[in-house]
């Protein structure tokens, strides 16, 4: 096992973690502020990816596509909040899960109706193509470094928004006591729509950035959604800081587990059996991690200040 390969895999783990953070930050923001379990968050991720692919195909510019993904997902989020989600805040979590599950089906079939059943093409922008040479002479794709950068920027932006702005102050107040801030004359309905649209825009941006690496197709959001839920449960539901550390932890543990478990097993069973057993164990690893963390810290690593 060479050191450069291990370093590269750590970087891959960080990059995967930041990808998860983009998705998990919106999910945890919406849960923290409104107490809403939004299963349709994966659909907003898909909307972002499709908006980016469609606009990039029409204009030839990934950057216009990225803008479209933010705008499209935010608009879809705001629309859904006003039409559906608004009626669910007072309901229990089961009703929220049912209604947002219905939204998944509506978004999936709606997207198929608009774009057809075949995956769309979306490539990384030429500006971020190519690879940098890491120490140890391994080339590393610039686009993946850019995802790490985007994740850092989003983390910083959310921190500043929540701790330094008036909107952030209201969001924190809304988390703490929603009746009180309504009584103080703040339009809580508009605040909720803004927060939901912001969370949707983050999901849409994640969809566009990741769509360039993966496949833009119907149903692409659901596997990521499951991981994003693992992340926010590990990090502490409602906590942005928890989402960041949870995402990085899941990313690094998953990536290095996939590499190291088969290697470790191959020292005492046949390579072929080690490959399949190691892969099976590696896929369980993050859930084992989640169970361990919940056993030690039932409210996650960084429990939100007020529940």
């Amino acid at each position: 096992m060479q050191i450069p390969l291990l370093l590269e895999q750590l970087l891959n783990g960080l990059q995967f973690g930041f990808m998860l953070f983009l998705m998990a930050s919106g999910l945890t923001l919406i849960f923290g502020v409104m107490g809403l379990i939004n299963l349709a968050h994966g659909s907003l991720y898909m909307v972002g990816a499709f908006a980016c692919a469609a606009v990039a195909a029409a204009t030839g510019s990934f950057w216009l596509g990225l803008v479209a993904s933010l705008a499209g997902a935010a608009a879809a989020g705001a629309l859904v909040e006003v039409l559906v989600i608004r009626r669910l805040y007072g309901r229990d979590h089961l009703d929220q899960v049912l209604a947002t599950f219905a939204l998944i089906l509506i978004f999936s079939e709606g997207t198929r109706w608009l774009f057809g059943s075949f995956p769309l093409y979306l490539d990384i922008p030429p500006l971020l193509g190519g690879a940098l040479t890491l120490p140890g002479s391994a080339p590393y794709p610039i686009y993946r470094l850019a995802i790490i950068g985007a994740g850092l920027l989003v983390a910083l932006g959310l921190y500043l928004l929540i701790s330094r702005t008036r909107l952030g102050m209201r969001i924190r107040a809304g988390e703490a006591d929603r009746e009180m801030i309504a009584a103080l004359g703040i339009d809580i309905r508009t605040l909720y729509t803004i927060v939901f649209a912001l969370g949707a825009a983050l999901a849409g941006m994640a969809g566009a950035l990741v769509g360039a690496l993966q496949s833009v197709q119907v149903g692409m959001g659901e596997p990521v959604l499951i991981l994003a839920f693992v992340v926010i449960v590990i990090g502490g539901i409602g906590s942005i800081r928890g989402a960041l550390f949870g995402a990085l932890l899941v990313g690094v543990v998953d990536t290095t587990g996939r590499l190291l478990l088969p290697l470790a097993l191959s020292s005492f069973i046949s390579p072929s059996a080690a490959a399949s057993t190691g892969a099976a164990l590696a896929s369980m690893l993050i859930y084992v991690l989640m169970a361990l963390i919940l056993a030690l810290r039932p409210r996650g690593l960084f429990p939100a200040a007020a529940g």
């Binding site: 390969l5 590269e8 895999q9 891959n12 783990g13 990059q15 995967f16 990808m19 391994a138 993946r144 990741v210 690496l213 993966q214 496949s215 692409m220 596997p223 990521v224 990536t255 996939r258 590499l259």
Partner: peptide, 9 residues
């Protein structure tokens, strides 16, 4: 959906 680790291997 992410194969960076396998590609490095």
């Amino acid at each position: 959906t992410d194969y960076a680790a396998e590609i490095a291997q």
